[in-house]
Amino acid sequence: MDSGAIRRWLALGVTVLTASGLLALASPGSAQAATSYCSGRKVRTLPFSTGSVQVFKRTGYVCAVTFPKTHGARKSMSVSVQARGGRPVVDRGQFAHHAGPVTVHVGHRCVRIKGSVGSGSVDSGWILC
């Protein structure tokens, strides 16, 4: 192999590594993180000004996780899931990456999801009926 061929192979290798690194940075981290916290399929994303709540459902259960728009410093976050006729299950505190997961057995009842990050919040009302 001559030196020109070696340079071309090295350039190709650097290009592939750079492209894979950029794709890894561009992929949505919160969606991948939520799937590791909640089992089942994602049924809703509830966006709000300072973050979002991702909602997952599997046979008879609903799971929710709140993610901030910006990660890093600890901030006040919460997530709650309430089956109709039951009490809400809440995770609230100062978190850097997420609040939750919170999982509730809902059977075939409607569910209410709430989430907040700092001053922003969302309330789904009764959904998944």
Rank of each mutant, 00 (worst) to 15 (best):
A19C: 09
R44V: 00
A26E: 12
S36W: 13
G107A: 02
H71P: 03
P28L: 06
K69H: 15
Q94K: 12
C63V: 01
L25E: 08
H97V: 12
P88L: 07
T45P: 01
G115M: 00
S78D: 12
K57H: 13
K114T: 00
G29K: 13
V55K: 04
C110A: 14
R84L: 09
G21N: 03
A64G: 08
A64T: 05
V117S: 03
G93K: 10
P47Y: 05
L22T: 01
A73N: 12
L23W: 12
V79H: 05
K75V: 12
R92N: 13
K114R: 15
S78N: 11
V43F: 04
S30F: 08
Q82V: 02
G40H: 03
P28D: 13
G51P: 03
L25G: 08
I113T: 02
V65N: 01
V53A: 06
T45F: 01
P47G: 05
S119I: 10
V90W: 10
S121M: 06
S119V: 09
V106E: 03
P28V: 09
G85Y: 01
H71D: 14
Y61Q: 08
V79R: 07
S52Y: 06
S121R: 05
A99V: 03
T103V: 13
Q32N: 14
T70M: 10
S27F: 13
G115Q: 02
V111D: 02
G72E: 10
Y61E: 06
Y61C: 00
V62C: 04
R92I: 07
T45Y: 08
R112D: 00
G40W: 09
R44G: 00
V117C: 09
F95E: 02
A31D: 13
V53F: 01
F48C: 02
T18A: 10
S121C: 08
H71Q: 15
S80Q: 10
A33F: 03
Q32C: 07
C63H: 04
R84I: 01
K69C: 04
T103E: 15
T35H: 13
P28A: 09
S80C: 09
T66A: 09
G29Q: 14
G60Q: 03
C63L: 02
Q94V: 09
R84N: 05
R58K: 14
I113K: 08
C63N: 06
S49K: 11
V81Y: 00
V111Y: 03
H105E: 07
K75L: 05
S30K: 10
G72V: 10
P88N: 07
T59Q: 11
L46H: 02
A83W: 01
G120T: 01
Q32W: 14
F56D: 03
T50Q: 12
Q94G: 12
A31S: 15
V111H: 02
R84K: 14
G60K: 02
R44L: 08
P28G: 07
H108S: 15
R44D: 03
S49V: 11
G86V: 03
S49E: 11
C110Y: 02
V79F: 10
G51Y: 07
A73P: 07
G51W: 07
G21E: 08
D91V: 14
A34T: 07
A19N: 06
P101I: 04
T66I: 04
G115F: 06
P68A: 11
L22A: 11
V122Q: 06
S49D: 12
P28E: 10
S52E: 12
G93Q: 11
P101Y: 01
D91F: 09
V89A: 13
Y61M: 03
V55E: 00
H105Y: 15
Y37I: 10
H98V: 06
S36L: 15
G86A: 12
